[in-house]
Computed example of a mutant assay.
Amino acid sequence: MHGRLLICLAFFMSLIASPLFASERTMNEAKLFAAASSGDVGEIRKLLAGGINVDVRNKAGETPLLVATHRNNIDAARVLIEAGADVNAKDMILDSPYLYAGARGHFEILKLTLLHGADLKSTNRFGGTALIPASERGHVATVRTLIDAGVDVDHINNLGWTALIEAIILSDGGKRHQEIVQALIDAKADVNLADGQGATPLQLARSRGYAEIAEILLRSGAK
């Protein structure tokens, strides 16, 4: 009996190692990436039920969840996350589903990642948290959500910039960025924390002619 079991096990292992089995697995992985990209929830569920690895990687190091996040395919992302996909898995350029959703303002996916273990201290290829590009790009709701989640408002990236500084120097100074500056200040961001060249947020706002942002900073004790 023991001998038969060993024979069966050896046969099964040979199937796994066979080119045919590997080819089918590769094809199913390709199908999963395609389904994640197109938002085909039914196909995703079918492939996951077949035992495919939810965190399989493509040549760019992306997982299916990151591919779904790129397209802002909310339902696809939800199915993958609920199946255990890693919201912090980074690709070759250090994007993760959490970081990408935050940076791009993919709000619903961001909230899903926060509910499933997003690493608030994780950083992108510029050494910045999700809050910094969200502030730069004017994603007001995303900024507020990340602040509420507990992301460090004074984190400095590799360029020497905080979220507050990026909300000034990489913005148009308009209403959305004014709201973000105020939200960061309300969250106790240091209004006098200078950039790598020693320029303060107030100096940077004035140099760009952003009078409204400068006024917000002045009311908060900026120098």
Score class of each variant (00 low, 15 high):
Leu5Lys: 07
Leu5Cys: 02
Leu6Ala: 13
Leu6Ile: 11
Ile7Thr: 14
Ala10Gln: 14
Phe11Pro: 07
Phe12Ile: 14
Leu20His: 15
Phe21Met: 15
Arg25Val: 08
Arg25Gln: 07
Glu29Cys: 00
Ala30Pro: 00
Ala30Asp: 04
Leu32Lys: 04
Ala34Thr: 05
Ala35Trp: 04
Val41His: 02
Gly42Pro: 01
Gly42Thr: 13
Lys46Pro: 00
Lys46Thr: 04
Val54Ser: 00
Val56Leu: 13
Val56Glu: 08
Ala60Ile: 05
Leu65His: 06
Leu66Met: 08
Arg71His: 09
Asp75Leu: 15
Ala76Ser: 12
Ala77Arg: 06
Leu80Lys: 04
Ile81Met: 03
Ile81Glu: 00
Glu82Pro: 05
Ala83Phe: 02
Ala83Arg: 05
Ala83Asp: 05
Gly84Arg: 04
Gly84Ile: 03
Asp86His: 01
Asn88Cys: 06
Ala89Cys: 05
Asp91Phe: 08
Pro97Met: 13
Leu99Cys: 14
Ala101His: 03
Ala101Gly: 10
Gly105Cys: 10
Gly105Met: 06
Gly105Thr: 07
Phe107Lys: 02
Phe107Gln: 12
Thr113Ser: 09
Thr113Leu: 09
His116Ile: 04
Asp119Leu: 09
Leu120Trp: 11
Thr123Pro: 00
Pro133Cys: 15
Ser135Gln: 04
Glu136Tyr: 07
Val140Met: 12
Val140Ser: 11
Arg144Pro: 05
Arg144Gln: 13
Ala149Leu: 00
Gly150Ala: 13
Gly150Phe: 13
Val151Asn: 04
Val151Gly: 00
Asn157Asp: 15
Asn157Gly: 10
Leu159Cys: 08
Gly160Ala: 11
Leu164Gly: 12
Glu166Asp: 10
Ala167Lys: 04
Ala167Glu: 02
Asp172Leu: 03
Lys175Met: 13
Gln178Asn: 13
Ile180Val: 14
Leu184Phe: 09
Ile185Val: 12
Ala187Ile: 04
Ala189Tyr: 01
Val191Glu: 00
Gly196Glu: 13
Thr200Gly: 08
Pro201Met: 10
Pro201Gly: 14
Ser207Ala: 15
Glu212Gln: 11
Ile213Cys: 01
Ala214Lys: 02
Arg219Asp: 08
Ser220Phe: 11
